[in-house]
Nucleic acid binder design. Structure first.
Lengths: 230, 230
DNA sequence: CTCCTCAGCTCCTCAGACAAGTGAGAATGG
DNA sequence: CCATTCTCACTTGTCTGAGGAGCTGAGGAG
């Protein structure tokens, strides 16, 4: 039994989240002066310095602006659309789930559109993943992600490619953690080689449904592992 | 003559600026562990609380990430990218294509997870879309998007919801244009009512494949229209 | 009416203390 | 000799108390 983490997030982040909700939720429109530090700290049940750090985090994100002697004011209601930060805050399983949907769709499109250049790139990435079977976890994860990125690139949709790139850092970290914690590769060095080969073959052959199902199999297995650990 | 401020900026901001320069200047690449709080505070000549607030501001901006007991780490060297702008620059068909993949996946999840509240919200949104059949194009598009947003919300994945929200503005504009240019609704006021009803029913019934295929039918029809016009 | 003073609010900064998590090396057991 | 467990130094997290400095509006002096 994997036992998820017990610890709650730091108080600072909880406080920042609560305040953020007030702002993005429209309760405190632009121009609002927030209640004083002592008041807010008491309301949220945290110390004054903790609250100050939470406010400072929001200021760093561009939501509020403190004015010495006058108060803290709301200057924006949207988090400046900072996706990397948002993804880092989110639960890994939620991120992975979205990645699954995006990439399965990409595989489908790739099977319809791949060019000869895409095919050679895919084969090279697949070879790279095999070559990394004996390497350390980090190198293996990088090779794995490179293959997946090649599939997405073959879909020939720049928005899709950019979106996948946004997910990469979080993915990389989560997968490296997963491998080092589970020791998954010790028994199966080339873990997932069959499904990945099937994926590349399906994209090459131009069969969308086969590509989608091969990829779905691989990703759902990993997602299951991630869920068990969190 | 505007006369700038005479007083120096708060120490917190000065400290944050100094640290930011170290990061964006490349002296501390991604993955670096910053010196400890006490060390940094001494080096910059400020108190520990002040330094902590400066670090918290950088964390809010997504540059660093503190890990309890371990240290503060650099996780990015530039203040994030602007997705809304990127989506606006991209081809509408590319955006719509990604939206299709994301939302079909969301529909699948929604069919597995929808709560009774989701179901009532879905029915209300469906009624809203019907009621807007006689309204102008803008109101109809808004009602349509509200229904789709309700489906995504029922998937109960915050990342997915946020991602869809990112697409909404571009979508809205493109669809309004499409309707006014094609005059599509003049002959079929409740355009797409059958497929949307089928979608809501499938999500309610909890049949992922049916929900996915109903939605795919609707979205691919629109995507085809978009392609023809561009 | 204008200007000044001032009290009461605000944020800013520091110091000190203790709690809690992490990781490496020492000590222990086989 | 190896693997496990324990210990400890070091890290960030949290709170409290104390002043410092800036802003704002009320009220008095001219």
């Amino acid at each position: 039994m994997p036992l998820g983490p017990v610890r709650p997030s730091p108080l600072v982040e909880q406080a920042a989240q609560r305040l953020r909700e007030q702002i993005t939720g429209g309760h405190w429109p632009v121009g609002t002066r927030l209640p004083g530090e002592t008041t807010l700290a008491k309301e949220l049940g945290v110390g004054r310095s903790t609250l100050r750090e939470a406010l400072r985090a929001l200021a760093g994100a561009g939501l509020v602006q403190p004015r010495h002697g006058s108060g803290v004011f709301v200057i924006a209601t949207e988090p400046a659309e900072d996706w990397p930060a948002r993804l880092r805050r989110a639960a890994v399983t939620d991120v992975y789930e979205v990645r699954l949907g995006v990439e399965v769709h990409a595989a489908r499109l790739a099977a319809q559109r791949r060019t000869p250049e895409d095919v050679t790139a895919l084969r090279a990435a697949l070879d790279g993943r095999r070559a990394a079977a004996d390497a350390d976890d980090t190198a293996f994860v990088d090779a794995d992600i490179a293959l997946h990125a090649a599939v997405v690139a073959a879909a020939r949709n720049p928005v899709l490619t950019a979106l996948f790139a946004e997910f990469t850092p979080v993915l990389r970290e989560a997968l490296i953690d997963l491998l080092s914690l589970t020791g998954l590769r010790e028994n199966h060095p080339g873990h997932g080689d069959e499904t990945h080969t099937a994926l590349v073959e399906a994209v090459t052959a131009g069969t969308p449904d086969a590509a989608a199902s091969a990829l779905r199999t691989d990703l759902e297995a990993t997602l299951k592992l991630l869920r068990e650990r969190s």
